[in-house]
Amino acid sequence: MEFKESQAIYLQIADYICEQILLDKWKADDRLPSVRELAVQTEVNPNTVMRTCEYLQQYEIIYNKRGIGYFVASDAMKRIKQLKKERFMENELPQFFRNLYLLDIELDELKTHYEKYKRSHFR
């Protein structure tokens, strides 16, 4: 896995796990790969993956069955979207709005481009 310098590795692994859930590759109550398997897959120390699991557990996206492993929570998709929306609104949207203002881009123009993007990428 290629990591960015701008974000902690455990958060990038959390994003990867969340993406797998959002893409419906891992469904509610599916068992996640073990901590060791994820560590090998992402090429990091198992302690880093453990920190990721603790983080995702804190947000109730995954849960632990002691001695068996981690599983996707039944409402994980809803919780992931909520968490990602909050992070987007707090971290990315202010800079995005600043760019719109500086470049004099109106929301109507943006809406047209967004609709075109959705048609070409998600249908």
Results as ranks from 00 to 15, higher is better:
V35Y: 03
L22Q: 09
A14W: 01
R98D: 15
N91C: 00
C18P: 03
K111A: 07
Q41T: 10
A76N: 00
N47R: 08
L83K: 14
I61E: 04
N91K: 11
Q57M: 14
Q20G: 05
Y101W: 10
Y101F: 12
Y59R: 08
K4T: 14
V72R: 01
M89W: 09
F96M: 04
Y10Q: 09
E37S: 12
H121N: 08
K81N: 06
K65F: 06
I68T: 13
E106A: 07
L102I: 11
D30H: 08
L110T: 01
I9S: 07
K25L: 13
D29S: 09
S6V: 10
N64I: 01
E115Y: 10
E86I: 12
L107A: 12
L22K: 07
Y16K: 04
L22T: 07
Q41C: 08
L93T: 02
Y70R: 04
E5L: 12
D24L: 12
D15A: 05
T52G: 00
F88T: 07
I9V: 13
L102K: 13
F97S: 13
E106C: 10
F122S: 06
V49R: 03
F3D: 04
L102W: 05
F88K: 02
I68N: 13
Q95C: 08
M1F: 07
F96V: 05
D108T: 05
K81P: 02
